[in-house]
């Protein structure tokens, strides 16, 4: 049992199999069901934050339309890891769209059109997008295109105007919790109070993240508790962050440096530290808004530097020194 359950990622195993079981997006599912019945399917554009069911919905739709066996022939799925420059749009998508498939499968509607799914479409260059524009028109007889993206503003307008758009909102905590409980029951897991809740709260409305965390947690620990979840998602223990903040603001730079080294050794990312340090700083009632602002500004800068490839350890030292300096100047002023 324990060896079998780790084989397939649960995100795949519990991906909704048909439109009916897609969670929490009534408006979308209603429209799509309608479209299946009438055979009147527009091009689709799904957008919203990660892990809200965009890919699940379109895959479920395709399965409802063609059945599992025909999926390969009828659906072309391209995501950001495939090359999707202007040439791919010109050749692969066009070629796929050109082939007419008429094989019917008993029990599925199998309409005449095929589906091209472009996942993570906000990464397609505007040039390639404008090439796609023509393709969408010329191929509309036997192909529907479904674009999936996080930010709809990254999709050029001519494409938006050719698609029916659907926004997927972050999945509410209660609904995520429900799904996790369902999985827990099916996998017959022993959960203790607060674990699933903690998983949901760290996932920020991203159901995929929640399920992945859950699977990892129950594979790694016998009976994971909230603290184990923190470890898994790379959250630094709150006491540790608080301790670093206290040491640094009392002016003991050397001590702070030692703690910084400790953090680096534990392989916590500076980004995570900054996000959690944010909370600690927000909660420090003694600190003036000015000082808080200065620190936030510095964090934005450090974030950028790290993104540009700066050494994390140096950036961390700089940040800690700056925080210590700001806090002490602020207290001195009072």
């Amino acid at each position: 049992m324990s060896s079998a359950k780790t084989e397939v990622p649960w995100t795949e195993k519990y991906r909704p199999k048909d439109i009916e079981s897609v969670a929490h997006h009534e408006a979308v599912t209603k429209m799509l069901r309608n479209a299946i019945e009438t055979g009147d399917m527009p091009h689709l554009l799904f957008h919203g934050t990660p892990g809200t069911g965009k890919t699940s919905t379109i895959l479920a739709l395709c399965r409802d339309l063609y059945g599992p066996k025909q999926m390969k022939k009828r659906v072309l799925f391209l995501n950001a890891s495939d090359d999707r420059g202007i040439d791919v749009i010109r050749t692969r998508v066009k070629e796929f769209a050109r082939i007419v498939v008429t094989t019917k499968v008993e029990g599925y509607p199998c309409p005449d059109y095929k589906f091209v799914i472009l996942d993570e479409a906000d990464n397609i260059t505007p040039d390639a997008q404008s090439a796609l524009r023509r393709t969408m028109e010329t191929c509309s007889k036997n192909t529907r295109i479904c674009l999936i993206c996080n930010y709809v503003s990254r999709i050029i307008d001519p494409i938006k105007s050719r698609c029916a758009k659907f926004r997927f909102q972050p999945i509410p905590a209660a609904a995520s919790l429900n799904t996790l409980r369902k999985i827990a029951r099916k996998e017959s897991l022993n959960t203790i109070d607060g674990t699933l809740e903690r998983i949901v709260s760290t996932s920020g409305g991203d159901l995929r993240k929640a399920i992945t965390t859950m699977q990892t947690a129950f594979t790694a620990f016998e009976m994971p508790g909230p603290a184990d979840i923190d470890t898994l998602v790379g959250r630094i223990p709150d006491e540790l962050v608080g301790q670093v903040y206290r040491t640094i603001s009392s002016g003991q730079f050397d001590a702070a440096k030692r703690q910084a080294d400790e953090l680096t050794k534990l392989a916590y990312s500076v980004k995570q530290l900054m996000l959690q340090m944010n909370e600690v700083i927000f909660d420090d009632m003694l600190l003036s808004d000015q000082a808080k602002a200065a620190i936030l500004g510095r964090m934005a800068l450090v974030d950028r530097n790290i993104q540009d490839g700066a050494l994390e350890s140096l950036q961390l030292l700089d940040l800690l020194a700056f925080i210590g300096y700001s806090v002490q100047m602020d207290r001195g002023r009072k």
């Binding site: 808080k292 602002a293 964090m299 934005a300 974030d303």
Partner: peptide
């Protein structure tokens, strides 16, 4: 860059 940290920068 991380959106939340940059929002922090904006507020700052």
């Amino acid at each position: 860059c991380d959106e939340q940290l940059q929002v922090g920068g904006l507020v700052a």
